[in-house]
């Protein structure tokens, strides 16, 4: 076997290999474009507020649990909270059941359930979504304390 200019039959095979990859990619891309909506696991609060999510159909909604929005019932396991995209859109959610350990305010969740005509999302499953940030508990404490010191005083740093 010699290198240098490629032999014609090998160049032809190289092109066939390229063609296989290209064609299969194109086919899958077209399928993906057709499926676009369905590949998304959940609707964002913005889509729900804009009315793009179907009403009274089993869907998933995902977003951040807004700070201070969680209200637990005193008689049963019902929890009311609001999910938002931290910009403008907000969707109230009602869920009865046990929440995952990572459920907390300011954390992302994905809920499965139905959207009522009144715009309340009644969930029968709530999953916690973890973000890409990892840190040791001590670091998280330091950050949380820095935040607390900052906000009421209105100035950065000083203690």
């Amino acid at each position: 076997m010699k290198f240098g200019p490629m032999k014609p039959h090998r160049r032809q095979r190289l092109m066939v290999v390229g063609l296989i990859v290209l064609c299969s990619s194109a086919a899958v891309m077209l399928a993906m474009m057709a499926l676009e909506e369905n590949v998304n696991l959940f609707y964002s609060p913005n889509e729900i507020v804009k009315g793009e999510a179907p009403v009274d159909t089993m869907i998933r909604a995902g977003g951040m649990v807004l700070e201070g929005s969680v209200v637990r019932s005193e008689t049963d396991l019902t929890v009311d909270f609001v999910i938002g995209d931290l910009v403008a859109a907000e969707v109230p959610v009602r869920y009865t059941g046990i929440l995952p350990d990572l459920f907390r305010e300011g954390q992302g969740v994905v809920a499965r359930g139905r959207l009522t005509p009144e715009g309340v999302f009644v969930a029968d499953e709530v999953l916690a979504k973890h973000d890409e940030n990892y840190m040791p508990p001590e670091v998280a404490d330091v950050i949380a304390r820095a935040h607390e010191n900052e906000t009421p005083a209105g100035e950065s740093g000083g203690q």
Partner: peptide
């Protein structure tokens, strides 16, 4: 070779779509 198209899909799935899996750290 046909399956190679799946590799960028795995890699960018978390950026292209809403997923439960977190994006890369």
């Amino acid at each position: 070779l046909v399956g190679v198209v799946n590799l960028p899909i795995i890699k960018y799935s978390v950026d292209w779509w809403n997923t439960l899996h977190q994006p890369s750290s």
